[in-house]
Design a protein around this nucleic acid. Sequence first.
DNA 1: TGCCAGGCCCTCTTTAGGGCCTT
Length: 217
Amino acid sequence: METMAVIDFETTGLMPAYGDRATEIAAVLVRDGQIVDRYHSLMNTGHRIPPFIEHLTGITNAMVRKAPPAEQVMAEVADFVGTLPLVAHNASFDRKFWDAELERIDRRRSQDFVCSMLVAKRVFPQAPSYKLGALIDLAGLPAAGRAHRALADAEMATHLTLHLQRELMQRFGLSSVPHALLGRIQKTPKNQLEQCVKRSITSTGRPVSAPMRCSDV
DNA sequence: TGCCAGGCCCTCTTTAGGGCCTT
């Protein structure tokens, strides 16, 4: 059975290309509809967290000063995740920081990201908001803890992803919804979900798995 | 109190503009 890794970063800002750095990372491993393992750590990059971000996340400069170095944390989380397919909410954001922080330790990503926000837009096109917390509330899923902390957000993104998979299985009579199918769904034009899923189903009723380029996400 | 971006998506669109979403 496929295992996926759902990740979430807290950072000093929005743009690693403009010098923003990670302050916290969490990775949740999910298999057979269950969380099977977790990694979580603050990290110290030596960069100052702006007051607005301290207020938003609750992660202070004093907290990260006592945290292990970012190089150590990123090496640990990269080993923890390995080559498992990745999921994040608004994955374009987490992918930028994942790639930038890995590059600093001379490592490269080899797997694809799926974005739970883009998949949610296809599965629930009438949702009033696609913020992680709003989708959790809409689906009646449990809040995992304080929003804007990496582990809580990663767990909420995990529950959302499992909810999307269950909805797709029920709606289309599928036995499973692998990462590759989620990757196809997030790229399909809006209102073409049914055509996308049907194209991906073989005569055995199992979704077709197909490799995707990292640039596809 | 957010500014910096960028991909996605919608519309009073397509030779564009603006909101959403992430911190």
